[in-house]
Write a protein that binds this DNA or RNA. Structure first.
Lengths: 191, 191
DNA sequence: AGCGCGTGCGTACGACCGTACACTGGGGAG
DNA sequence: CTCCCCAGTGTACGGTCGTACGCACGCGCT
């Protein structure tokens, strides 16, 4: 047995119900996905990352599919939350446009983690319609948040633009500068 | 011992009685990727799809990585070709804008195959920089093709817009209409 | 105190994986 | 014709996978 550093035994000794365990498994699942992709995500690896025995996997989740679905649902919700918070903080359309620029140039580009997980989700959704509910909810929330400041058509365009610019910014070997993002948002939002 | 002028038929290494075999394996690999994803793509499955024995896999390719890299390279090149052809056929900026709309609304949306493979590639590139050369070459060619009709900045924006609109069109449960695409392209391209 | 009981875990099984490697058999050299 | 050689293949091995399932054991009830 290896000496696990983080979670040792239950704090008060003995076996106690651990309501956070299921949550920790889901979080660990997202970490594993970010690291090795859905392809490399296995019950064993997630169990190790979460510091729980392998048996817990099948106990808490029906199978790999349920685990992935819950993990991506949590991820999508968290990302939507951040997006919505950004939009809610904007007081007018100009501030909202600035926020959109910030989202593209800062939020996703910062860490490869979110980028990887997002793409893993898209890939899954592209092949398995059972995951489309997650992407749909995400896109719907984004659009609704944008509609606080823009008309529905513009919101759709902005949403798509964010998507595309984010991807290209992350994958391009010589990414576009911030000025391109500012200009693109301006072109879409001006009437 | 006259070895003159006999072995110059095939540029690389030994002679190949079945020159199409390697190609067929690569094509079959793309089919398998579209069907079960990179995660489910194995030497055995590709071999079966290509109608070749398992041993051929290790004979023709160093490993899974080389096979995937070649397969995605071929895919990216084919997609770029189609894009470039569309752009070359346009005689002026207005026709080019129409072509962009057609690409978004027809090319990718048609069959889930290309959509799935594209996302599998993005996901791979997002995590493994070893595949970035493929996505980079693809994006560079797209941009260059767009620059036949638009200035470099606009080309970058259009490229990103195509990306985002395509994804949303494919994954959204109630996709945007063609008019939204037309309008978005118009907003980006007007000066 | 004794005692089920069900939550949660350890382990084992069969399937499938990538890859190595010994071999074969058909066509060109002699 | 024979012989040899290597392109191409069949198979076996070590490993990881998902999942099933029997069992341990602390808690609540009596």
């Amino acid at each position: 047995m290896t000496t696990a550093g983080l979670e040792e035994q239950h704090p008060e000794g003995g076996r106690r119900p651990d309501p956070g365990r299921r949550d920790r498994i889901i979080d660990a699942c997202l970490d594993v996905i970010a690291e090795v992709g859905v392809a490399g995500t296995s019950h064993r690896r997630v169990a190790e990352a979460a510091g729980v025995p392998l048996g817990s996997m099948t106990y808490h989740f029906t199978g790999m599919n349920e685990l992935l679905h819950e993990a991506f649902t949590r991820f999508g919700t968290a990302e939507s939350d951040q997006f919505e918070r950004r939009m809610a903080a904007a007081t007018d359309a100009a501030a909202a446009a600035d926020a959109v620029v910030a989202i593209i140039t800062e939020d996703v580009f910062d860490t490869p983690r979110d980028l990887v997980i997002t793409h893993e989700l898209y890939t899954l959704a592209a092949r398995d319609p059972g995951f489309r509910d997650i992407t749909n909810a995400w896109m719907a929330r984004s659009r609704r948040a944008l509609e606080r400041h823009f008309d529905p058509t513009t919101a759709r365009m902005l949403d798509a633009l964010i998507e595309g610019l984010t991807i290209h910014r992350a994958l391009d070997i010589e990414p576009h500068g911030r000025d391109v993002v500012v200009d693109a948002v301006r072109r879409i939002t001006r009437r």
